[in-house]
């Protein structure tokens, strides 16, 4: 167990945070799509010291079968923390916290998906927290929505998420572990960028109405930025997979010719 020390202050006299960030500054975010070969879709996120991998399997047959939905796919998110991801060893069995977070992540992602395209199936989203340093549920959503896109699940948009909060009376964005533990409040949230609607909203700590609304607005702004990072990561991944320019042209030409020829005789028969 690594010792934990409560910092003397969360906001320095100069107005900076424990890790030197400005109040509205995000931690460095590293996103990578397609990190697991076996999964239908996968993504990794490193947000500060938080490190999470998400994998998507499906749409595939749902077990147990009684969960089957006749009008859409069942979205099953499982958020799990590795035993070594936190200072104390986490008990290996799924905790109540993990189960609640799995549920709110499902709620956060589902509005973005066209699940009605795949009735009677399941889309599994497995989220493994490798290292936890605050903001894991939001980082998990950032990675999971990329993994869903990587798996080719039809989506309205990616879902960016961020935690906003309050430390030493100052509203801050993207809480680190110390700010989460010793700060005055935490508001994890996720957004559908296309409509600006909120799909995840939780809060603890103590906020006035005005503070809370301002914090949510800061979160919306941060999500706009994270959304750009997500799109960028997705493009980067598929840039690698795009065939060489010449091959692509040849392939398209062949396709058009084939189609043209096959259509002609059919019309002639009729």
């Amino acid at each position: 167990m690594s010792p934990e020390i409560k910092p003397d202050f969360l906001i320095s006299p100069e107005g900076l945070r424990v890790d030197g960030r400005r109040p509205d500054e995000l931690r460095p975010i590293e996103l990578e799509v397609g990190v697991l070969k076996t999964a239908d879709g996968s993504a990794m996120i490193k947000q500060g010291k938080t490190h999470i991998i998400a994998a998507v399997y499906g749409p595939r047959e749902l077990h147990p079968r009684h969960l089957t939905l006749n009008d859409k796919a069942y979205l099953r998110c499982v958020y799990r923390m590795a035993t070594f991801s936190v200072p104390d060893r986490k008990r290996p069995a799924p905790s109540r916290r993990e189960r609640e977070i799995s549920m709110v992540i499902t709620n956060a992602l589902e509005p973005a998906l066209f699940l009605e395209e795949f009735p009677r199936t399941v889309v599994d989203v497995f989220i493994q927290v490798i290292q936890a340093d605050g903001g894991t549920r939001c980082a998990a959503i950032n990675a999971a929505s990329l993994a869903l896109a990587d798996a080719g699940i039809p989506m309205r948009s990616l879902v960016p998420a961020v935690a906003v909060g309050k430390a030493d009376g100052v509203l801050i964005v993207d809480l680190g572990d110390a700010e989460d533990k010793y700060g005055e409040g935490d508001v994890p949230m996720a957004v559908l960028p296309s409509t600006g609607e909120i799909t995840l909203l939780q809060q603890d700590g103590s906020f006035t109405k005005e503070e809370l609304l301002e914090a949510i607005q800061m979160g919306l702004n941060a999500c706009t930025y994270i959304h750009e990072l997500q799109k960028d990561a997705l493009k980067r991944a598929y840039l690698r997979k795009t065939p060489e320019k010449e091959d692509e042209d040849e392939y398209e030409d062949d396709l058009e010719t084939d189609l043209g020829e096959s259509e002609l005789p059919e019309e002639a028969d009729e």
Binding site: V104, L201, Q202, Q203, D204, F207, T208, L212
Partner: peptide, 9 residues
């Protein structure tokens, strides 16, 4: 009149 917890569900 402070908000001390919130949950969308």
């Amino acid at each position: 009149d402070h908000f001390t917890a919130m949950q969308k569900g």
